[in-house]
Design a binder for these strands. Sequence first.
DNA 1: TTCGTTTGTATAGAACAATAGACAAATAAC
DNA 2: GTTATTTGTCTATTGTTCTATACAAACGAA
Lengths: 248, 248
Amino acid sequence: MNEREPAVTRKSGVALWRQIADQIRQAIGAGTLGADGRLPTEIALSERFGVNRHTLRSAIAALVQEGVLRAEQGRGTFVESRQKLSYPISARTRFSTGLREQTRERRSILLADALEPASVRVAEALGLAPEAPVIRLETLSEADGRPVSRATSWFNAERFPGFAQVYAETGSITLGFQYFGISDYFRKSTLVSARHADTADLADLKLSAGAIVLVARAINVDPAGVPVQYAETRFVADRVELSVSTEA
Amino acid sequence: MNEREPAVTRKSGVALWRQIADQIRQAIGAGTLGADGRLPTEIALSERFGVNRHTLRSAIAALVQEGVLRAEQGRGTFVESRQKLSYPISARTRFSTGLREQTRERRSILLADALEPASVRVAEALGLAPEAPVIRLETLSEADGRPVSRATSWFNAERFPGFAQVYAETGSITLGFQYFGISDYFRKSTLVSARHADTADLADLKLSAGAIVLVARAINVDPAGVPVQYAETRFVADRVELSVSTEA
DNA sequence: TTCGTTTGTATAGAACAATAGACAAATAAC
DNA sequence: GTTATTTGTCTATTGTTCTATACAAACGAA
């Protein structure tokens, strides 16, 4: 068997330039393209993908817009940013930790909060009665000034009244729990899936249509095993991978 | 904050009918559409998405082709298959186990095998010298007659000579290892990412372009902690979610 | 300067995607 | 049988995407 060549599919509902942009972005991440910081010429790439040079230019234009590439007339096209962030998923690790060595600047933003009755899914995850009051937090995480994830979290409103304000002041879920006397908490289970970003995610994460998000649905429990947080986090698939360590 | 409405983005490189098909497929999986097994009428859906009925029909046609929907003239459009398979990822669970209750018929197919020198990534994962001989297995997994995952696995060729034949006869990695005296093995680490399916995956997994695959890159070790298998598995994101249990 | 290389711009035609309106065919209820 | 509802088919028009060809502008080296 030969190594599979990158290729494109016609009349599939996805424009050729977008398919090519996705493949170039992926190849850069994998290091199979632009490993020396420089992309092959437009003519070479257009021949490689079997499309017209203009089609390939559309793909490059999209990646320049995203900040992945930088094109200089007369010189060539260059890789602007490469590495993927790796988010550890394990019982004792928070999403936000373990990233300190990977990125310079990192922050979380509270977009919105609400008090609402629990949906079936949320009630089940938190072990509450349906329609029980829960606090919902909408947060955005950035690394090096770029959005990397968008999360929706739910908390038992009776046990954690005013959690949103505490979070807004501390900027940390961990510190928020400490305020309520929970010294430590554990990730019980995580469901990972992937889908195309919806319009809300596209706006918040500053993505272009067709982008992919990794979705992690997690239940966190206190030391007694009682669920304290249910969170649905959408990660930008191009910039993030999830690392599951299952050591004994 | 209101519940976000499904919406579509124009001239984004992704055709409207494909965006709509993705959203319908996702809504069916989430149970927010066709929960009673029946889809709203074409006219109702076209108004909901703000497109012409013909555009919406293209989306439905794609989902019928995928086997997600079934349209009957004069009666309506119905959901053909709904539930997502949930693959557990933990230290002691194989990918293939834990699915027995979820699906009736399940099988693995050996597509191809090869003896080759290890790439940098494979050598690093298996703890071998670069260019060391490794056996590569290309496998396809089906559940209920439908492809759900496509895996590429590498094994140390010196330690497991003829592994491909053993696998072909037994149809199981676990039994293959037992043949070589390894009674048990453990998942050491897993990296999860997501991307658009490439053309090879599109063909093997019978997907249409633009489809998403969940990629799990895993290292399995024997009881002594020595790496015995490195695998890159691509799951059909529409049909699978990965379940990470991080209990103490 | 001169030349070859590379990205940027322009124009026109072909292929595909989306809209619009009209009608046919099958189904279910009356 | 009649009617309303729903999916299936057809034709025409407009906008977007892709191709083809040509040339301009910037860069680097001889």
